Amino acid sequence: MTEPKITELRPMPADWQRALAVVAHPDDLEYGCSAAIATWTDEGREVGYLLASRGEAGIDTLEPAKCGPLREREQRASAAVVGVTQVEFLDHEDGVIEYGTALRRDIAAAIRRQRPELVITLNHRDTWGGIAWNTPDHVAVGRATLDAAGDAGNRWIFPELIEQGLEPWNGVRWVAIAGSASPTHAADASAGLERAVRSLLEHRTYIEALTDEDPETYARGFLTAHAERTAERFGGRPAVAFEVFSR
């Protein structure tokens, strides 16, 4: 029996200047995507973050009123490590974010404000590769982001945004899904991997509640393992994988 052929991943599109990364919670981008973002900001590209919630329901031992502000601070510090200064929160309720027109409108508004060519989000499917069940928040935000990329360019969808001074933006050329079980592209993580580790470590309160393992050992092991697995399909180079939808 012959071994199945490994499908090589294509390099991420390079002819863009501005990206917007849209996720549900603080730390979502740091679990694997920030190495690519660090490389892109080094190249002079602009990347903004949009978070649907402040992750206030994410730590069992910390009540939401205290947890939300703490995780927001950790997220802003984490973003700064990889060269991102624009971090916006939408204040949807952590754990019960609902897919629907309200979420689509909020994301479309952010796309119109920031005018990205590339939009990034997280796995929007029911499972992580058929192995683990995904959270409703990830599914809702990922799916709404895919839809909002089109909503942002249609003046007849959410016309109230025009009244707020947000003209349609039909310049989104790609939506890239991190954490997909069906990746099509990858971004070289060699230059950004060390900063990705430091970026994830800024979520120290969350990590310490999640595992008894030393935080740096945990962060480095998790991110390195993912980058090395992707390397098998990307010429041996540590990389971040994405499923890319063109528009």
Rank of each mutant, 00 (worst) to 15 (best):
K5P: 01
D15F: 06
W16E: 07
L20P: 13
L20D: 12
A24P: 05
H25E: 11
P26H: 13
Y31M: 15
Y31K: 07
A38N: 01
W40P: 07
W40M: 03
E46P: 01
Y49Q: 03
L51S: 12
A52F: 07
G58C: 09
I59C: 11
T61H: 01
P64A: 07
R71T: 05
R76H: 05
R76N: 09
V82N: 08
V82Q: 04
Q86M: 04
E88H: 12
D94P: 11
D94C: 12
G95K: 13
V96W: 10
A102E: 14
L103S: 11
A110E: 15
R115T: 12
L118A: 04
L122M: 14
L122R: 04
R125S: 00
W128M: 07
G130R: 07
P136L: 07
H138E: 11
G142W: 00
R143G: 04
D147G: 04
A148R: 00
A152I: 04
N154M: 14
W156N: 11
F158L: 06
P159D: 03
L161W: 10
E163L: 13
G165Y: 14
E167M: 15
W169L: 02
N170C: 09
N170Y: 01
W174C: 05
A181S: 13
S182P: 00
T184C: 00
A186G: 12
D188N: 15
A191L: 02
G192Y: 03
G192Q: 11
R195V: 00
A196M: 13
S199F: 06
H203V: 12
P215Q: 09
E216M: 00
R220D: 02
R220A: 12
F222M: 14
L223K: 12
T230F: 02
G235L: 03
R237M: 03
V240D: 05
F242D: 05
S246I: 04
R247I: 02
